[in-house]
């Protein structure tokens, strides 16, 4: 009766990999965004655009998608060697500062109630400032150099990072903290071995959210005042009534955002293995 049990199958069978049941598969199939359908709808929209633009026949207002692609190809050298690097530079500096600042504030607010009481309402209300309206002020104060643009980018991206990471850090179960305390864990250990791990998925989600925002922020700022960058390029092309060339940087920005977000998505899938439903 009391022989040493070593069979792990004896009790507590290994859990069936979650979500392989027939109903679950059906549910997934229905719930999953049907990418095939999305492609069809996308194609219809592009075809409609092509048709309307051809009927309208005013390429300086509405170029056809084909014209946009051709124009992109013609302008590839300028776009890829001058303007894209300029925008990416501002985006990465802004995003980098935002991450450092956002993490710092999130950690301080999560660890020290005084910081939270003092800053959380301000961080939240900072989001009500219309960035596009305040951006010209930055140009006025900091000139046409990169820092006014970096500042706009920071203003756009700082919020989602700070708030998401803060929520993650605060999302630790009380029972977990107490268990750690009974093991004699220090506050520092609780932070590194518990809080950080709970916050990590939130952090990556925030980055995914912040990337497109940072590109938009950079482009808006360049539009308002600059000598280079995709926003600036688009503005210049408007004055030249070159419709297709106005569209080119927009397409390029979207492509860059999609690539960056999917890279982070890939990292996420590789790193956050424990929450994935299989």
């Amino acid at each position: 009766m009391y022989k040493k049990m070593n069979d792990s199958e004896g009790f507590g069978f290994r859990k069936r990999p979650a979500g392989n049941s027939r109903l679950m598969k059906e549910y997934r199939r229905e719930a999953k965004p049907n990418s095939g359908l999305a492609v069809v709808v996308g194609l219809v929209i592009i075809l409609a655009w092509q048709g309307i633009a051809m009927v309208l026949a005013k390429p300086y207002i509405l170029p056809t998608p084909i014209q946009v692609i051709i124009r992109m190809w013609e302008l590839r050298k300028q776009l890829l060697t001058v303007h894209l690097p300029a925008t990416l530079g501002i985006t990465s500096i802004g995003l980098g500062i935002s991450i450092i600042l956002g993490l710092f504030l999130a950690i301080m607010m999560a660890e020290f109630p005084t910081w939270e009481r003092a800053l959380y309402p301000l961080v939240v209300s900072s989001q009500t400032i219309p960035t596009t309206a305040i951006a010209p002020l930055f140009v006025l104060w900091f000139g046409y150099g990169i820092w006014s643009k970096v500042l706009v980018t920071i203003l756009m991206t700082f919020f989602p990072i700070a708030i998401n990471v803060h929520n993650g850090l605060k999302g630790v179960k009380r029972e977990h903290i107490e268990l750690f305390l009974t093991y004699g864990a220090t506050r520092w250990q609780i932070f590194w071995k518990l809080r950080v791990w709970i916050a990590l998925p939130h952090f990556l989600a925030a980055i995914k959210m912040a990337i497109p925002l940072s590109l938009i922020g950079a482009a808006i700022a360049e539009w308002l005042g600059g000598q280079a960058g995709l926003g600036y390029f688009s503005k210049r092309m408007i004055t030249q009534l070159d419709g297709a060339a106005v569209f080119a940087p927009i397409v390029l920005l979207s492509v860059v955002a999609i690539i960056c977000v999917s890279v982070i998505g890939g990292i996420e899938r590789r790193v956050i293995t424990w929450t994935q439903d299989r």
Partner: peptide, 15 residues
């Protein structure tokens, strides 16, 4: 009696 499950994440284990 769980040595063979050493390198598995908890979600793969039964209650």
């Amino acid at each position: 009696g769980l040595a063979e499950w050493a390198n598995v994440l908890p979600r793969e284990l039964s209650g």
